[in-house]
């Protein structure tokens, strides 16, 4: 049984067919790329998988359970986390609190504990802070835990967003253009980071990325969308030499 199974999913917005007949199987531990030109429907696929949109047609299963109509928070608690193309941090909260929010649904104390600050509160908060700091250290963000998220430099915001997603302890991580706006050196580092977190956290990763060296460098399998249709699927090598892909996408991207 695959970890994630999406069958014949379509998303229509009033006549606009953003995604059509999308099928995907992710095996545990895979790192799969999702690419395609601007407006191809990649982010829409993420939105369907994470409960932001309910697909117009099709079904989605995660670990054998149907999640097609589940709410985003249920899906996240079930084990799927994501980052966003346009960073969505909690800007006016500290770096530490951004992580703590992601841990919130695992925090076991009641309102009364919080009001009275009883031992249960102390115990849980201590645990949560330690866990958060551990994660921040892994992402080289320790020392910045009291900065407001909005005041971090761009690259660190991207890292914090990944750390925050990981804090929810997902089995499947969806990354939406994590290297956007980074130079070659930075995206090279990011690539290492993604490889490393996959090992360290035992993750399955689905990655949207425009930056071809990143995608080709780390993905085991790539799916290509164009105008909502899946036009190719295969190993990086196969994709690089696929004629339809070159026409639709690589042609324009690689040349410039």
């Amino acid at each position: 049984m695959s970890l994630l199974h999406a069958e014949h999913c379509s998303m229509h917005f009033k006549g606009l067919k953003a995604v059509q007949d999308f099928t995907l199987d992710l095996e545990e531990g895979e790192l799969v790329g999702l690419i395609g030109p601007n407006g191809a429907g990649k982010t829409t696929v993420f939105n369907m998988l994470t409960g932001v949109y309910v697909p117009t047609e099709g079904k989605i299963f995660f670990q054998g359970q149907e999640i097609t109509k589940a709410k985003a928070w249920q899906i996240n608690q079930g084990g799927i986390a994501r980052t966003f193309q346009n960073i969505r941090l909690f800007g006016d909260m500290t770096v530490l609190d951004n992580i703590r929010v992601a841990l919130s649904f695992r925090i076991r104390y009641k309102m009364l504990d919080a009001v009275l600050r009883w031992s249960q509160y102390q115990k849980e908060e201590t645990r949560v802070i330690e866990e958060s700091m551990e994660l921040l250290r892994l992402f080289h963000l320790d020392g910045k835990q009291h900065f407001l998220a909005k005041n971090l430099p761009y690259g660190e915001q991207r890292r914090l967003e990944i750390a925050r997603a990981l804090a929810t302890k997902p089995k499947l991580l969806l990354l939406d253009e994590p290297a956007a706006g980074m130079n070659n050196k930075e995206s090279e580092e990011l690539m290492q980071l993604i490889r490393w977190i996959r090992e360290h956290f035992n993750l399955t990763i689905l990655l949207i990325e425009h930056h071809m060296p990143v995608v080709m460098g780390i993905c085991e399998r790539i799916k290509v969308l164009d105008f909502g249709q899946t036009i190719a699927e295969g190993t990086p090598l196969e994709i690089q030499s696929n004629k339809r892909v070159i026409e639709a996408y690589l042609g324009e991207e690689v040349e410039d």
């Binding site: 994470t50 985003a72 996240n76 909690f90 800007g91 929010v101 992601a102 919130s104 649904f105």
Partner: peptide
């Protein structure tokens, strides 16, 4: 923290497992 997170970015908050 949950309330403030909702204020700051409701979609991200929901994606962090918050009802």
């Amino acid at each position: 923290r949950v309330w403030i997170a909702i204020r700051e970015n409701v979609i991200a908050a929901e994606m962090m497992g918050i009802n």
